[in-house]
Amino acid sequence: MQVFLQNWIYLIASVSLIGVGLYIVLTKENIFRIIVGLNIIESGTNLFMIAIAWHPKAVMPIYTATDHLAVNGKVIAADPLPQSLVLTAIVIGLGTTALALAIGVKIFEKYGTLDVRKIKEAEK
């Protein structure tokens, strides 16, 4: 049971988050809801990237913290490179979210609605 969970639980979490986010983006009409969906997709992607850098016996990649963390005389740290990539991805996600919200607020000021369908009709 434990082995099964270790292998699969993080993958299930990340993939279902990506799926839920994609579903929101594809079906919802409210602009703010679409941005919520984009955020959830981003969380799922980050989780996926961290999960494939991990090993059940791994310790965190910090020298001063791992001094006494030998497992059976052997030690493995989680792969730090994907972690650094995810740091970057999180910050980029914040930037995109802020810009999208600014555009959304602007759209509400000018069209008086956040519904994508109504905006399309107003353009015609």
């Binding site: 994609l22 983006v25 679409i34 984009l38 999208a100 555009i103 759209i107 000018k110 069209y111 353009e123």
Partner: peptide, 17 residues
């Protein structure tokens, strides 16, 4: 012009996915 905003938002959604 207000039509600029709709186009920009569409681009944002597509390209962030």
């Amino acid at each position: 012009e207000r039509r600029a905003l709709g186009g920009a938002f569409k681009f944002l959604v597509v390209s962030s996915i």
